Simulated assay, not measured.
Amino acid sequence: MGQRDPAGDVLWATASVGQPPAPVTASRLLGIDPGTLDVDAAYTPPTNSTVEAVHGIDVDDERNTLGVTNTRNNSVSVYIQKTGRHLATRPYVHHSREVVLDEKRDVVWAGAFGEGALVAFDSRTFRDIRHVPVEGSGPTGLTLNEWTGAVYAADFTNDRTIEIPPGSGTPRLIPAGDAPRSIALSADGRTAYPADQAAGAVSVVDVHRGTVARSAATGEGAKSVAVDPCTGRVLVANRLAGSLSVVDPRAGTVVESVTTDAYPNHVRVSDDSTVYVVDKTGSGPSGEGGLTRIRFSPQSSHAPRPAC
């Protein structure tokens, strides 16, 4: 998985080699130059009884840190961006998948898929803040409303969006499509976009009303979703279709489709609308995947470029 550094200086990604039930043999945190796509920094996670294999990732530029999930180790860790120094590991996050760092409130949020819960801890002291169980759930994708502090998770098990309101330990459950794997928010936080893996689609969810307003078929295995901050268009990586879909959320239609490398697994959009797609082809010398950069033409009628 990859995450764009909001400052625009580094594209951070994680790499782990080893498919279950085999153990992970290698894992690294990678700092990538967004212009050249060269790897400028490579940090190796600690090894205790096993490699602390990194998976999900998010950045906190105010604290110069990286938050990562160690899915196979059931934990969440925090690192220094500049040096790669390991600061702390928060254990007992069963099958942790994605993580979001709330810079304004100094909170690290993570989803515990194996437990059916969302957990939060202080990014300064690493002390627990909140543990929110959602009975029978399977939270996978995770996103944050930076304005309010509300957290949203895709409930892969029950076809729902889980909302944790600011300061609340009581989840609000909103419908989604079939097997949502990832989730993103509109810039104003009023609309959520779960990528519905089983349906091969993205849902457009009215957060206030708690309803699915519409959906758009994107391609088989819709796995990851992001929102272009300039255009409001929704980008969906379709893992089994090997494509990236550009969706107009107001119309609920795919306006452009781009063929990617095999098994696109994650998509992120930078502040200047550059799109980055991480794939899991396993074509690298040690079984690594690849990274593709996509820039849509400013003249394209499908992808207008208003000033941000």
Rank of each mutant, 00 (worst) to 15 (best):
M1R: 11
R4F: 11
P6M: 09
P6Q: 08
D9R: 15
P20K: 14
P23H: 10
V24T: 15
V24P: 08
S27A: 14
I32E: 06
P34E: 11
P34Q: 13
G35D: 14
L37Y: 10
Y43M: 01
P45V: 07
P46Y: 13
P46N: 10
T47F: 05
T50S: 12
E52T: 12
V54N: 01
H55N: 10
G56E: 04
D58S: 13
D60T: 09
D61M: 11
D61T: 15
E62H: 11
N64P: 04
N64R: 15
L66F: 05
V68M: 02
T71G: 03
R72H: 10
N73W: 02
S75V: 09
S77W: 08
K82R: 15
T83V: 10
L87E: 04
L87G: 03
A88S: 12
A88V: 14
A88Y: 10
A88N: 14
Y92D: 12
R97I: 13
V99P: 01
L101D: 02
W109P: 03
A112K: 03
A112S: 14
G116R: 02
G116F: 05
A117P: 00
A117E: 00
V119M: 09
V119G: 00
D122E: 02
D122R: 03
D122C: 01
S123T: 02
R124C: 00
I129G: 00
E135V: 13
T140I: 14
G141I: 04
G149P: 02
A150F: 02
D155V: 04
T157H: 03
T157L: 03
N158H: 13
I162P: 05
I162N: 04
P165S: 12
G169F: 01
P171N: 05
L173R: 13
P175G: 12
A176I: 03
G177A: 10
G177V: 01
A179I: 11
A179L: 08
P180M: 07
R181Y: 04
S182V: 07
I183F: 04
I183Y: 02
A187Q: 11
D188R: 09
D188A: 09
T191D: 05
A192Y: 00
P194V: 09
A195I: 01
D196M: 00
Q197M: 14
A199G: 14
V202G: 04
V205M: 01
V205P: 03
V207Q: 06
R209M: 08
G210T: 12
T211L: 13
V212Y: 06
A213Q: 13
R214H: 08
S215G: 09
T218I: 08
E220K: 15
K223A: 13
K223M: 12
A226L: 04
A226P: 00
D228R: 07
P229C: 08
R233I: 02
N238Q: 10
S245F: 08
V246E: 06
V246K: 06
G252P: 00
T253R: 15
T253P: 06
V254G: 03
V254Q: 02
T259F: 06
T260W: 04
D261A: 14
P264R: 08
N265T: 14
V267E: 00
R268K: 14
V269N: 01
D271Q: 14
D271C: 08
S273V: 01
V275G: 07
V275D: 02
K280C: 08
G282I: 06
S283T: 15
G284L: 09
P285S: 15
E288R: 09
G290V: 06
I294S: 04
R295H: 07
F296T: 05
S297A: 15
S300E: 09
S301D: 12
A303L: 12
A307W: 11
A307L: 14
